[in-house]
Design a protein around this nucleic acid. Structure first.
Lengths: 339, 339
DNA sequence: TTGAAAGCGTTACCAT
DNA sequence: ATGGTAACGCTTTCAA
């Protein structure tokens, strides 16, 4: 049987409350008493019971992190930073996967699992304003990503402007027929919608015609899904001048499909991504992409969550994290490649 | 204030115990009573308090998953399957990162955080027999991967034989000078040691001389670390006929370094990986690799953990998960590429 | 089948 | 500065 605070108290010749005082450190304790208690803890190899503690003070020290799919390199890197940053703040992280299931998102938001976690960081796929409203009494939540709502705290990168910037960059590199890969079909992905919007805005600024045939639908945001979608597309359509993929994972799949068909990047077509994951930087050719600091996203999200937990009546805030476009070989024009 | 079981009981006109009976379902309850209680729960939007429940029955319904680095695609995919499989069994998963820190591994093993989690799945980097012995009273633990010990349950793939097989495959493809990339320097990685051992055994079987200059050290198992290590190596050494990278992430970095130097794969040098991650399948060229079913690893690990939690005195078991080598373009010889 | 009461291990309040 | 007591919300004896 594991020793309890009572056992420690008995051994140290004090009351259980004193043991608690030593542990929490909020009330002062005589150095002598403290020493005796700490020694008793050592001897008994005492570890406080977490459940009892959270029952008593209503805090578990655990936060939830809900992501669509942990196996995506982008999500994995995000999770890595959140786990790391949370650990530094003394928080544990429980991972939940929503598997692109809107129902699961609403479930997590509304109530489920409450009180095992003190708060939730949610990276939704489709969550819209209506879904947020469902949960009348929300647990402390911070939303991550390009979901369009303002009823909760959130951290995001301005995907509209970023997508517009990327579109204009590709045009500046000489592309006229610029396609996007990852447009949403049945899934209604908030991220896809945002980036498509930015792409269209970019085209409008450039005075380029909008051609919906250049918006390649692909709901499965994996290299496999992307390769299949692009291969099928190219069987029916002309090769565009550039393909702006809505994530690096999509871009990796695109590079694969193009290579299979003997199409050279960037000579025959330029390719760009979004997210700046490691495997994109080291792809062949390395990917031009939209980069942002995932560690900062993690820190800001945890800051907000901590404030929200402390005070649930705060006005919801939105934090916008900076991005920048990193140009790599996948979009080099002929002149710069001559160097 | 959140409603408690007592509130539900009052509203339904029953005792708290009856509410509990409805919830746990272990004692039979009159359909009429059950219906009344369930209605009361609905009306009050009742969610049982997790802390109280775990305090009472000594189970949290949470397991820990400790990995070196969640941002590695391999770890991410593993975590994905474990989270998914655990969810199906009604378990939550708390993620811990050991950051390649042996101290943190021992910490997790020995006692820390006990009783917030019912058990631990640990994918160690360096953990050896001695470290396991430290924890006299271990919590229920299942070890993942090629760590060399037999005092706890574990699930692994036979990396020795797999590495040997890969070495022989590369030889069969015509390679004579076969290098490995990812050999351990200061880190003493158990996985690196195992795979190096298999590589050497393969060479011995082939009657090839062992040349330690072909064992390229790289402790940082990321594409970046790999690209740097290989670039530096090639500045000082001749190009081998084949490079067997100890993970696909290393191989992706290797492809990048080779491409930067204008070295063609597989024409000038063959490259192979280990793990079969998506980004390797869609790399350019696609990677030959050692593949195994991560979902099965997850299921087996959870099976064992459940058994261990139920009975802590069982004899430790080892489960070996099958692997197979998948040949892709990164090792195609000239003849097969002619097809 | 249901109810009453005790207890899981911890911490807060109120004395001393 | 320390101790006693009660309470967090649930489940498990034991009785009815």
């Amino acid at each position: 049987m594991r020793p309890t605070g009572k056992d420690v108290a008995r051994r140290a010749g004090v009351s259980p409350k004193t043991v608690s005082n030593v542990l929490t450190g909020v009330v002062s304790v005589t150095p002598r008493t403290r020493a005796r208690v700490e020694q008793a803890m050592q001897e008994l190899n005492y570890v406080p019971n977490h459940s009892a503690r959270s029952l008593r003070n209503g805090r578990s020290g655990l936060i939830g992190l809900a992501l669509p799919d942990l196996s995506t390199p982008y999500s994995a890197d995000l999770a890595h930073h959140i786990v790391e940053a949370a650990h530094e703040r003394g928080w544990g992280v429980q991972i939940e996967e929503t598997g692109h299931d809107p129902q699961r998102e609403v479930e997590l938001m509304s109530q489920a699992r409450t009180n095992i976690i003190d708060g939730l960081i949610l990276n939704p796929v489709v969550l819209d304003e209506s879904a947020v409203k469902v949960g009348v009494a929300l647990p402390p939540v911070v939303l991550l990503g390009e979901v369009n709502q303002h009823l909760t705290d959130r951290v995001w990168v301005d995907g509209v402007t970023a997508a517009s910037d990327m579109t204009k960059l590709l045009a500046a590199k000489g592309a006229r027929r610029i396609a996007v890969l990852g447009a949403t079909g049945e899934r209604r992905s908030a991220t896809a919608i945002t980036r498509t919007e930015g792409y269209r805005a970019g085209l409008a600024e450039l005075g380029f015609p909008r051609d919906t045939a250049l918006e390649i639908v692909c709901d499965d945001w994996t290299p496999r899904g992307s390769a299949e979608a692009l291969a099928a597309y190219l069987d029916q359509h002309d090769l565009p001048d550039a393909i702006f993929c809505f994530t690096d994972s999509l871009a990796i799949g695109a590079l694969n499909a193009l290579s299979s068909k003997g199409i050279r990047v960037p000579d025959d077509v330029m390719v760009a991504g979004f997210d700046d994951i490691d495997d994109g930087e080291f792809a062949n050719p390395p990917l031009t992409t939209v980069s942002f600091d995932r560690r900062e996203v993690a820190e800001r999200a945890l800051d907000m969550l901590a404030r929200r937990i402390a005070n649930r009546d705060r006005t919801p805030e939105t934090v916008t994290v900076d991005y920048r476009i990193i140009e790599r070989a996948s979009t080099h024009d002929r002149i710069s490649r001559k160097n």
